[in-house]
């Protein structure tokens, strides 16, 4: 590999060895000098890390039960397609909140945090992880007060829906949390998990993609561009392929 000089080479090693001053979530974060040829290393990709199975990473047991119950009312199961819980939407949200999204990594977090107009965007040093923690606790408190000591997950489906409708309409105040904002974020996050690639923990077995007819992470429709008003026949694939490709047929 041709390099500027001994100095350049050493400098780069130094950069890579030292603690990165500012990591930008890029595939490499050290400054480099590029000339003579395209910088390229075999197999140097940056594939997404799959969500691991197993216990909650962020939620407590109670929080997890509440979010699973919420997921199953926001995306209820039906005879053809599982609901939010069985499709993994709570797992998706748990892994997201335990990661960069929950911590607001990469966002601008310098003070002062002033209250502004809605169209000036989110202005808080609290990230989604902390906001979910507070709102879920407040929701549990509200349900226990209203429904004779019961948590959200113990309510009947009709009562659960009533709680959600009240949150949506801004009629249910949560102690120390904005109920309507929490509801909007919750619906958005769970539905995102339902339709995201299964690698992130939701949309298990691509159930959401099968439901709507989306063929997934394909990249060549050349044979189909001129076939109009004809249903695309192939099943979905995810970033990790299809179960049949890696597992013996049962």
């Amino acid at each position: 590999m041709k390099r500027d000089s001994q100095f350049e080479f050493c400098r780069r090693q130094l950069l890579l060895a030292g603690a990165a001053y500012f990591v930008l979530g890029a595939s490499h974060s050290g400054a480099t000098v590029i000339y003579d040829h395209l910088p390229w290393t075999p197999n140097a990709g940056n594939p997404p890390p799959p969500a691991t199975l197993g216990p909650w990473h962020f939620f407590t047991g109670d929080e997890g039960r509440t979010v699973e119950a919420l997921a199953d009312r926001i995306i209820p199961p039906d005879p053809d397609t599982p609901g939010g819980k069985d499709s993994g939407c709570a797992v998706f949200l748990d892994r997201q909140l335990a990661g960069p999204y929950g911590r607001q990594d990469g966002l601008y977090l310098r003070p002062p945090f002033l209250k502004g107009a809605r169209n000036q965007g989110h202005q808080s040093d609290k990230g989604p992880a902390q906001q979910y923690r507070e709102a879920l606790a407040a929701l549990t408190k509200s349900c226990r007060a209203k429904f004779g000591g019961k948590a959200f997950s113990d309510l009947s489906d009709a009562d659960k829906d009533r709680v959600l409708e009240d949150l949506e309409k801004g009629k249910l105040e949560l102690d120390g949390a904005d109920g309507k904002a929490f509801f909007d974020q919750l619906v958005k996050d769970l539905q995102t998990g339902f339709f995201a690639d299964p690698i992130y923990g939701g949309n298990r077995d691509m159930v959401a993609w099968k439901m709507i007819g989306y063929p997934g992470a394909r990249y060549n429709y050349l044979d189909w561009i001129n076939r109009h008003n004809e249903k695309f026949p192939l099943p979905p694939v995810s970033l990790t392929g299809r179960a049949e490709w890696t597992r013996a047929e049962r």
Partner: peptide
């Protein structure tokens, strides 16, 4: 200011079709 980017390393056809990672995040 940012990193060098090219298809084989940064958006290969094996995992580029990722709406959560590239659009949402």
């Amino acid at each position: 200011r940012g990193p060098w980017r090219d298809a084989p390393t940064d958006f290969p056809p094996t995992y580029m079709q990722d709406e959560l990672r590239y659009r949402v995040r």
